[in-house]
């Protein structure tokens, strides 16, 4: 019986042999922890107790009947949609500007990437200092120079959410810039030349050439930004800790609090599983809506 062979002469078994290390790594370091996390969510594992047992969907019932869920879910939607929208649009705008630069593009690109290399928790602390309600807070020092009253920025629910969004966007935009700048540089010049000959406006060039050509990159960026923001805990934790009250508590922070403050590992795993499912649903939705023709 003839074995199926590809154009480069490798049989299916040989393919499997070569990709097996990668499969094992993915199974061992991604699939197994995710599945184990789902299993924990079906138990009552709590670090303050020595034993645990299977409890079925109890933790999910607890989660969906949690009185604070409407507020935390609303916060999460506002936080994720704002961050993703701003990160992508600002990333695209700055990438377009950098793409136009003839001189200093590398330097500007290096400067633009700087926020990305700063650890997220440091950014949280930086923004906390920036918006501290004390006279020593940097923003208060600046506005006082212009004769304005100092403000307690982070004690106002709307302002603290806006500051949290701004700080996460500030860190995330460089990734969008790098991805989209890379994508812009792969778009063929002939397309722009043809559009120019046909008298297309800047807006028409952006809408009919640039954005459609960038679609695969935008899709990757969208998926990364959404899952990254949904899972993000460092900046909210360092900046507001979810406060005032629960005004800036997002699902990832609830997960952290349950796992590391209350020590309820099963409930934390339940929230993690819910976040995983939301991520999967959004990723599939993005892939369907923004399907890229082959």
């Amino acid at each position: 019986m003839a074995r199926a062979r590809s154009a480069n002469g490798l049989s299916r078994h040989q393919y499997l042999f070569f990709i097996m290390p990668a499969i094992l790594v993915v199974l061992g370091f991604t699939a197994y922890p995710a599945l184990y996390g789902i299993w924990i969510s079906l138990t009552n594992l709590h670090f303050a107790y020595p034993d645990s047992r299977f409890v079925g969907l109890d933790n999910y019932v607890r989660f969906f009947t949690w009185p604070a869920l409407p507020q935390v879910a609303t916060n999460t939607v506002i936080f994720v949609t704002s961050v993703v929208a701003l990160q992508l649009s600002l990333g695209l705008m700055i990438a377009l500007l950098l793409n136009k630069l003839v001189f200093g593009r590398r330097l500007m690109r290096s400067i633009a990437i700087l926020p990305w290399v700063i650890p997220a928790v440091i950014i949280g602390l930086m923004f906390q200092q920036l918006f501290s309600g004390s006279k020593l807070g940097i923003m208060n020092t600046v506005i006082a120079m212009f004769g304005f009253e100092t403000r307690s920025w982070l004690s106002n629910p709307s302002e603290s959410m806006a500051i949290m969004i701004a700080s996460v966007v500030w860190r995330g935009v460089p990734l969008s810039i790098i991805l989209q700048l890379g994508g812009l540089q792969t778009i063929r010049r002939e397309l722009y030349e043809a559009a120019s000959i046909d008298g297309a406006s800047r807006w028409q060039v952006l809408r009919y050439i640039t954005i459609p050509s960038l679609k695969p990159i935008l899709l990757i960026n969208l998926i990364m930004a959404t899952s990254g923001t949904l899972n993000h805990v460092d900046i909210p934790l360092a900046l507001t800790g979810g406060g005032p009250g629960r005004a800036t508590e997002v699902l990832s922070l609830s997960l952290y609090n349950q796992g590391f403050q209350v020590l309820d590992a099963a409930y934390a795993s339940t929230i993690a599983t819910v976040i995983l499912i939301i991520n999967l649903i959004l990723t599939v939705a993005y892939l369907r809506v923004l399907r890229v023709p082959r």
Partner: peptide, 11 residues
């Protein structure tokens, strides 16, 4: 001040 509602000891 009401600001304390988001603050820990270091803040």
């Amino acid at each position: 001040p009401l600001d304390v509602s988001t603050m820990d000891e270091s803040a």
